[in-house]
Write a protein that binds this DNA or RNA. Sequence first.
DNA 1: CTGAAAGCGCTTACAG
DNA 2: CTGAAAGCGCTTACAG
Lengths: 342, 342
Amino acid sequence: MITIKDIAKLAGVSPSTVSRVISNHPRISSETSLKVKKIMKEMNYHPNMMAKSLVSKTTQTLGIMLPRPAEELFQNYFFGELLRGIITHATRMNYELLLSTETSSSDELNAISRLVHGRRVDGILLLGSKREDPIISFLEAEKFPFVLIGRSETHPDAPMVDNNNVQTAFDATTHLIAQGHKRVGFVSGPPDLTLSHDRLLGYKNALEEAGLDANNDWIVEGEFLQESGFRSMSLFMSLPDRPTALVVIDDNVAFGVLRALAELGYNVPEDISVVSFNNIALSELASPPLSSIDIGTYQLGYTAVQVLLKILNGEHLPQNPVIIPHRLIVRDSSLFTLSGNA
Amino acid sequence: MITIKDIAKLAGVSPSTVSRVISNHPRISSETSLKVKKIMKEMNYHPNMMAKSLVSKTTQTLGIMLPRPAEELFQNYFFGELLRGIITHATRMNYELLLSTETSSSDELNAISRLVHGRRVDGILLLGSKREDPIISFLEAEKFPFVLIGRSETHPDAPMVDNNNVQTAFDATTHLIAQGHKRVGFVSGPPDLTLSHDRLLGYKNALEEAGLDANNDWIVEGEFLQESGFRSMSLFMSLPDRPTALVVIDDNVAFGVLRALAELGYNVPEDISVVSFNNIALSELASPPLSSIDIGTYQLGYTAVQVLLKILNGEHLPQNPVIIPHRLIVRDSSLFTLSGNA
DNA sequence: CTGAAAGCGCTTACAG
DNA sequence: CTGAAAGCGCTTACAG
């Protein structure tokens, strides 16, 4: 392994000088700088990041903490898109990314405390949060820099990048109501996620504002899996007063919903309209093409890295949370106006 | 930050002794060990990994190199499943994972050489390879430990974990031939990937063995995207002698194929049968449910980590490449026997 | 503008 | 079984 000393010797200067050349120290003669840089290139020298980290107390690395049942996340296109946004900006800013996950629920702080106390990363990106999240408490107690992608109810001051998910669900529901629907159901996600909670609230708000009944039979909770949507339909459609429209928490879940409806012999959108969330690439190719709220997934990841780097630089955060705008993409699955309603 | 010296002082021993306790050195009295461990716990001490790495020349970290157009990969459920296998075993073995990607094609060795020369990782996992891959040449020249998930034609001695992709495509094609199909098409992936190449070969071998014609009009190359499959169909189905069955390189691509066929008014499997690869969770819920070759995606990732750790331990690799077994999951999309053929 | 020296938090022969 | 010392490859006041 070739070190800073080797370069120094070859260039006829001291190791300190080489170090200064590497870090573009202002008070170094351009002559010396050029000479040293030439030799570094010739020798294909790269600084040892571990040594650098040890003295600088900085790692140029960001940690990504995946929530525990990563299985679910990984089955979701949404996650890939988020990761893509993260990687793009981190790479651009010369940061490395360390991927970590909770090892077991019995010891859920284990992974995070290894990262934090082992000084392996400069800051942490939290992908999603539970309604009560000990990881956030831990990071706040440690005063360790982090950004949450999502929203925390219990830690309102935590730096967050999120959509306005009450509003996303409000918009989706209102769109269906505007088509004349009076009985709108909601296929939700895991109840311990803030995301599910917020969207449920937005859904209820929209019904209330329209003076429509909320009916608990029209709300079902599940997971972010196609199977979840698939299974929920037999129950829904057998209700005496079944919904004529559905808001579905996630595109994948909506695929399961569409499949179940097809098997049960219902037509979308004529028999029942569907709007979901995330607008993954596949939504457009579903049968029928799926109306979906585009939440700017890539932008969420990208922005989260920007915010975290600001924190690391000690910059002031002009606003918190940072809200990524969403918009409803209307496709065939909700393009059906109920008769008798203008 | 609390260091090994602080612990030593509190325990009334030397830093060397604390270090030995941490690494479970055999010649340490259990009395001393207990005492030191107690204090470490009380003080919530965690060793500084950077310092440890600097002297031990080891990082307990594995690098994951993503191929460049990561966009494609990330849109693919397949990738999530692979990553899940990697994370599971790496975490279990107390290794961290560094996620990296080529920054630009003009400087494709930049990211990898930062990892290798910066000594940030102990070994590297390569996700997929191109037919001519400078990254593999680089790693071999540097004698840096790595495992390729996939197969390299130009570097047959590189450690690899792969399916037998000639065989996977052979099996898929043979299954269709067994249903009586005489005109079988192939929707392939990017031609510069070894994977595409191998599966095309398996497809051709199967045709040849059955004494059937290969027809270049029945072969189309594209990307691992739904759109790719979608677009390929208008061409295929307008051929005078169009195929009655299709082998499709990837489930996502197959979704696009199914969608296009539905729009064009063809029934699957009656008008045309389809078999694809990867058997992602969604395959089962497609309309119709998709026959697919299960390639053991999770196992590929998991095994790749196992192999890489073996290399790091200096163990001998009993075989190379390691082949993960596959199996055909037959579903409705290929369950139709052409009349006049037993 | 440059160098010598101390130090980052660990590990590991060497000695006892 | 344990400690003192040297060293891993860097950076950074301090001095000139």
